[in-house]
């Protein structure tokens, strides 16, 4: 069964999974980081409290996060088709992945930034720093370690979601596991893909924690 075709297919699966995960995480942060910052600063103890803005993003984050990913995947098919012209394959899967990852990332960014010592923020204010300076030079800098840990968690979660996308022809290792393991009862291929997924999560986790610890100057 380990024909060159199967090996090539699994190899392609690995590449697709990594591609979907990393691109979705990156795009998730492009949207989720500003959203998280906004949630953090507009909250009632934030730099610029604003009930309306906070509530709007709070609700968006909660609604999207409470929709099961598989349902979101299906719900977004028309949107994905509108955006990319097709709704299957790994590139198309990135659309629902980003949609699911953004509020999740925003929440993690929000909590990382809220961990930053309020005293340091106050010190920056006392020096005449404005809101934007405090965000870029204090919150994001002091919250660095927690933010990097957040990226690691996000990658793991998105990788899991990407495997789920296999159920609707999303490409990647999950797709292979579903097609061979579930539809064809080829459990050996399914196990192989599962082990590969576990390995990928492990690798990303280890790298992420290494970077987080390496860049943390608090100890």
């Amino acid at each position: 069964m380990w024909t060159p075709e199967v090996i090539a297919m699994i190899g392609k699966g690995i590449v697709e999974t990594i591609y979907m995960t990393l691109v979705s995480t990156a795009l998730g942060y492009v949207l989720g980081l500003p959203m998280g910052v906004l949630l953090c600063i507009t909250d009632k103890d934030g730099l610029k409290p604003n009930k309306v803005i906070y509530k709007i993003f709070d609700i968006i984050a909660n609604v999207v996060r409470s929709i099961p990913f598989l349902i979101l995947l299906i719900l977004l098919i028309p949107f994905t088709r509108f955006l990319l012209g097709q709704s299957y394959g790994s590139t198309a899967t990135i659309v629902p992945l980003v949609a699911a990852a953004t509020p999740f990332i925003a929440r993690m960014v929000e909590s990382s930034l809220k961990e930053v010592d309020a005293g340091v923020v106050e010190a920056a204010k006392s020096m005449g720093a404005g809101t934007f300076t405090i965000i870029t030079k204090v919150l994001l800098v002091e919250g660095k370690t927690s933010l990097i840990t957040g990226v690691t968690i996000a990658i793991g979660t998105i990788l899991g979601y990407s495997a789920m996308a296999g159920a609707v022809g999303g490409g990647g290792l999950g797709d292979i596991a579903v097609r061979y393991g579930y539809y064809r009862y080829q459990t050996d291929i399914m196990f192989t893909t599962v082990i590969l997924l576990i390995l990928l999560v492990q690798i990303f986790q280890t790298i992420g924690m290494f970077i987080a610890n390496r860049t943390d100057k608090r100890r």
């Binding site: 005293g119 010190a123 006392s126 005449g128 720093a129 800098v141 860049t215």
Partner: peptide, 22 residues
Amino acid sequence: LRKKREKVGMIFQHFNLLMQKN
């Protein structure tokens, strides 16, 4: 006001230094 604050230094009980900066 921010300009004015630049001319008023402040120090704190818990120092409030940036822990990630030297």
